[in-house]
Structure formats: C-alpha cells, structure tokens
Simulated assay, not measured.
Amino acid sequence: MTVTQAIRPEREISHAVARLLLRAGAVHVSRQQPFVLAAGWASPVYVDVRLLLGEPDLRRAVTELAARHLRAGFPDGGFDAVVGAETAGIPFAAWLADALDLKLRYVRKRPLGVGRNAQVEGGPVDGLRVLLMDDLTTDGASKLNFVRGLRAAGADVGDVLTIFYHDAFPGAGERLTEAGLSLHALATWADVLAADDENRLAREDRAEIERFLADPVAWSMRHGGRASLTPRL
C-alpha cells in the first residue's frame, strides 16, 4: 500500500467510519471478475460509500464523525461553506453543513451549459473559504476538476474531505499536494481491515484484499487494468 499524504482523524473516528461501511455492506469483493475503477485501475474490491445515504442511523453517525474530525482539526472554524461534489458528495455535504452551521454549495463536474452556465450552485463562493466534500477518492483527478471550478468562481479551497480513500494506488496524494490541497480521509483500507472486529468480511475475501494491497499495481496489470500512473488511452 502506498504511503498517503492524507490528513487522518484519530483512530477512534477512522475505525468507527470503517465499521459503518462494513455494517452497510459497502465493501464488495469479487474474486472472479475484477472491478474497474473510474481511474482505470482493476481491483478485486469496490467500496460503495453511497450505501450510507439510505439509512438514517448510518448517515447521522458518519456526519457526526466527520464533524468531530473537523472541529478537532479546525477549532476556530476555518470554513465559510461546505461544498458537495456532484453527485454523492452533495447529500453528505448538506448534512455536514447543518451539523457545523455552515453555508452549503455544490459543484458540478462541468458547467450545465444552459441558463447561467454555472458549475457552482447554491450561491456565490467568491471570497469564501470552502471545504470540498466527496464520498470517495481514488486517484484525485475528479477532485482537481471540482477545485478548478471552485477557484474559477473565486473560492478559497485548500481542503478536501472524503469518507473513504482508496489509497492502494499511487499518485493521488502527490497530485493533490501539487494543487495545494490537503486530503482529509475519514477511512482507508488499513482502517477497514483493522476495524472488522465483527468478522463481516469472509476469510477468503479478506485474504484476497490483502493479496491485492501487497502490490495493487501488479494486481491491476494482471487483471486487465492500468499498469502505471500513465492512464491508458
């Protein structure tokens, strides 16, 4: 597993988030047919963070854990607004903005092309210090696109909050750092494996995850995915 450059919450928070993901059934393992992630990597496991959206106890819990992390890291506030990334980041951002009593905005993947042709919705962000929130981070490329839209609209954005960071593959931390961004990752693979005290992962699935994490790039290459940091054309 690569060394991340993410800002990690205290272990109690990260393990609690990992348990919520396991409880929601969000960790899907396929030993026969690999998943191909948006970044082009092949993986035997896929984390569907959106499953936390559906159950009120799960979404309340993850919102409170995210708020606790931010209150600890930014005791004097630090943000004027939470911005949800289209699409799954929007509801999580809305609940977090309520918990922290902050303004809410959302950012599209691209301008709408009609009306105001806006990429940022919900109100102006010019001069505001904003926190970008999304459900999942893999290689960080989509986050850079969202941040470009926010900065073009005048926002001061230097922090990204993600519920799960698929930190197996290289490049994301360096890419975000070069863009002047700090990634706050509530849970990673290490947390999922360490926090599975209820044995929700089958022994065979856990073994497959561990084999994958030992050399994820080689695993991806063997299963038809990307083999390097350079995306396939």
Rank of each mutant, 00 (worst) to 15 (best):
G115E: 09
I209F: 02
D215P: 12
A194P: 05
D215G: 13
K109A: 05
E210F: 12
D126Q: 14
D167Y: 05
E210Q: 15
V217Q: 11
A118F: 06
P124M: 12
V107P: 05
R148D: 05
T177V: 13
A118C: 07
S142H: 02
R105V: 02
A141D: 10
G158W: 05
W95Q: 07
D135C: 05
P170Q: 11
V147E: 01
I163V: 15
L176I: 07
L213M: 11
G127T: 09
F164S: 00
F169N: 09
A155M: 02
L132V: 06
G173P: 08
A185I: 03
A194G: 07
G122I: 06
P111F: 01
N117Q: 10
D135W: 02
Y165L: 08
W189M: 09
E178L: 14
L144T: 00
T177P: 01
G158F: 06
A195Y: 00
A185W: 06
G154N: 05
G113C: 07
A152Q: 14
E198W: 10
S142K: 10
V192E: 02
D134S: 06
E174N: 08
L132T: 01
D167E: 10
G171D: 12
D135M: 02
V157L: 06
D215N: 15
W219E: 03
Q119R: 12
A194S: 10
R110I: 05
D197Y: 10
V130M: 05
L136M: 11
A207M: 08
A195T: 07
I163S: 03
T162L: 00
L213Q: 10
L193N: 11
G113K: 07
T162Q: 01
F164C: 01
L201W: 08
R148C: 00
D205F: 11
R175Q: 07
W189Q: 09
G122M: 04
R206S: 13
G115A: 11
K109R: 14
I209C: 09
H166A: 11
G158S: 14
R129S: 04
L144N: 02
